[in-house]
């Protein structure tokens, strides 16, 4: 009981920390004071650490990987977005990307809190390590695609203004859009494949064209298209940014649209 209470506290604290990180980086953007930028990044590190502890506790409490329903997957999404941001931060400094990703993590957690957070036992088909691995890898991909689309939006905004400083930012953003998609594509592919292996061990079919599977394939096609356009054809700039945004819309549809609008094999994961 106490650990469940502690967990709720941790959940709320991580949400608050992400929110503060967002506020700090927005102030940093406006005041151009280095302090706020450093504080925002520090807070994101704290947020990710708290969430990591939270996920670990929930894993122990449930006796299984905590990635099985809407609540748990939204928490995971909040975590992966900030993790991908921090990985990128090692290379490039982008204060407003800190604001955007902290906001997205906070939003994911706030949305998670509208769902049932109780730990429930799993039905037999969901008791699989392949499934945990599948969800984890898909969400790392989704986190990367989220950051990519945020950078793409940033690029589109930055490319409206014309100054040399903006030009530099644009180039960094272009690179981030492509890098995060490479990273995301690797993990989405791994996610789809582990999902197929799971389906094969649960039902004897690795692919059955159910809406969730099909939408993950659509998403995968979109990003495969991006890779060919970007790396082979050298598409950059606005067109690449738009593909990244369309790709993330497809991710969102795979995640929400299919759960709420379309029925299918995966629909039991709804509650």
């Amino acid at each position: 009981m106490t650990s469940i209470l502690n967990m709720t506290v941790l959940f709320n604290v991580s949400l608050a920390v992400y929110f503060c990180a967002m506020v700090a980086s927005v102030i940093g953007l406006m005041s151009r004071r280095r302090f706020f930028d450093v504080a925002a990044n520090g807070l994101i590190v704290v947020g990710v650490s708290i969430q990591t502890i939270y996920l670990g506790m929930r894993w122990v409490e449930a006796g299984r990987a905590p990635f099985s329903n809407m609540f748990e997957s939204l928490v995971l999404f909040g975590w992966t977005v900030s993790v991908v941001y921090l990985l990128l931060r090692i290379r490039a400094k982008l204060p407003w990307l800190a604001a955007a990703s902290a906001a997205l993590s906070a939003l994911a957690l706030a949305h998670a809190s509208t769902f049932e957070s109780e730990i429930r036992p799993l039905m037999p088909a969901l008791q699989s390590n392949w499934l945990s691995f599948h969800v984890m890898t898909c969400f790392l991909g989704y986190g990367a695609f989220a950051i990519s689309s945020l950078a793409a939006v940033g690029f589109l905004i930055a490319s409206r203004e014309r100054s040399t400083a903006q030009g530099e930012t644009r180039q960094t953003l272009e690179t981030i859009v492509a890098q995060t998609i490479s990273f995301g594509f690797l993990f989405l592919t791994l996610g789809i494949l582990t999902g197929a292996v799971w389906a094969n061990s649960a039902w004897g079919t690795y692919w059955s064209w159910d809406p969730k599977e099909t939408w993950s394939l659509i998403t995968w096609f979109i990003y495969a298209g991006f890779l060919h356009f970007n790396f082979v054809r050298g598409w950059r700039g606005r067109r690449a940014a738009w593909i990244s945004i369309i790709g993330f819309v497809s991710v969102l549809f795979t995640y929400y649209g299919v759960n709420f609008l379309l029925a299918g094999l995966h629909s039991y994961a709804k509650s």
């Binding site: 991908v84 090692i90 890098q179 990273f183």
Partner: peptide, 13 residues
């Protein structure tokens, strides 16, 4: 460190 490996990619030469 993962993303570090996703270095800048140039169009295929």
């Amino acid at each position: 460190m993962g993303l570090l490996l996703f270095a800048m990619s140039d169009p295929i030469e």
